Structures are given as structure tokens and as C-alpha cells.
Amino acid sequence: TSEVNPQMLQDLQAAGFDEDMVIQALQKTNNRSIEAAIEFISKM
């Protein structure tokens, strides 16, 4: 599995997102940004 940015993971979990969804979103967006991860999650 590709690495996820631990700070982004922590921030998104703090915002109430599920850890598994956050990890998948960060991997799919290559840790580009929190906004990109949220957009990915919203389309899941």
C-alpha cells in the first residue's frame, strides 16, 4: 500500500471521517490535499 500523510489522516479523522475511507482517499489522491481527499470521499 502507498503511504498516507499522517497529518492529513489525523486532520480528516478529527473532522469525523472514517479511518478506512480516509486512507483510501489519501492513497487515491496521492496525498495531494485534504480538499482532494474530501472530494474523493464525497464521491464514494
Rank of each mutant, 00 (worst) to 15 (best):
T1W: 08
T1D: 14
T1F: 13
S2A: 11
S2L: 07
S2N: 12
S2T: 15
E3L: 05
E3T: 10
E3Y: 08
E3P: 11
V4W: 02
V4F: 05
V4E: 05
V4H: 06
V4L: 05
V4Y: 06
V4T: 07
N5I: 01
N5K: 02
N5F: 00
N5S: 08
P6Q: 15
P6R: 14
P6H: 13
P6G: 12
P6F: 10
P6T: 14
P6W: 08
Q7I: 07
Q7V: 09
Q7W: 04
Q7L: 06
Q7N: 07
Q7D: 10
M8A: 03
M8I: 04
M8K: 03
M8D: 04
M8E: 05
M8V: 03
L9M: 08
L9Q: 10
L9Y: 04
L9V: 12
L9P: 03
L9R: 11
L9F: 11
L9S: 10
Q10D: 10
Q10K: 14
Q10G: 07
Q10E: 11
D11H: 08
D11G: 03
D11L: 09
D11N: 13
D11Q: 15
D11K: 15
D11V: 11
D11C: 07
L12G: 02
L12R: 01
L12V: 02
L12P: 02
Q13Y: 03
Q13L: 15
Q13D: 03
Q13P: 00
A14L: 08
A14T: 08
A14F: 04
A15F: 06
A15W: 04
A15I: 07
A15T: 04
G16A: 01
G16S: 00
G16C: 00
G16D: 03
F17M: 05
F17Y: 14
F17W: 08
D18Q: 11
D18R: 07
D18P: 10
D18E: 14
E19W: 01
E19P: 11
E19D: 09
E19M: 07
D20V: 07
D20R: 10
D20K: 13
D20N: 12
D20L: 06
D20Q: 11
D20Y: 03
M21W: 06
M21P: 03
M21S: 12
M21K: 12
M21A: 13
M21H: 06
V22T: 06
V22Q: 03
V22N: 04
I23Q: 09
I23P: 02
Q24H: 15
Q24I: 13
Q24G: 06
Q24C: 12
A25S: 06
A25M: 00
A25D: 03
A25V: 01
L26I: 06
L26V: 02
L26D: 05
L26Q: 04
L26K: 04
Q27L: 11
Q27A: 10
K28W: 04
K28S: 12
T29S: 04
T29P: 03
T29R: 01
N30A: 08
N30V: 00
N30D: 11
N30M: 02
N30E: 14
N31C: 10
N31P: 04
N31W: 02
R32V: 14
R32K: 15
R32S: 14
R32Y: 07
S33R: 00
S33P: 02
S33C: 04
S33E: 01
S33V: 00
S33D: 05
S33T: 02
I34D: 07
I34M: 14
I34T: 14
E35F: 04
E35Y: 05
E35Q: 10
A36K: 08
A36N: 05
A36G: 08
A36L: 05
A36Q: 06
A36H: 08
A36F: 01
A36P: 05
A37H: 02
A37M: 02
I38M: 13
I38Y: 10
I38S: 10
I38F: 04
E39H: 11
E39A: 11
E39L: 02
E39R: 07
E39T: 07
E39N: 10
E39M: 06
E39F: 00
F40G: 09
F40T: 09
F40S: 10
F40R: 07
F40L: 09
F40M: 12
I41E: 09
I41H: 06
S42G: 13
S42E: 15
S42R: 14
S42H: 15
S42F: 07
S42L: 07
S42V: 07
K43V: 10
K43R: 13
K43T: 13
M44P: 09
M44S: 12
M44N: 15
M44E: 15
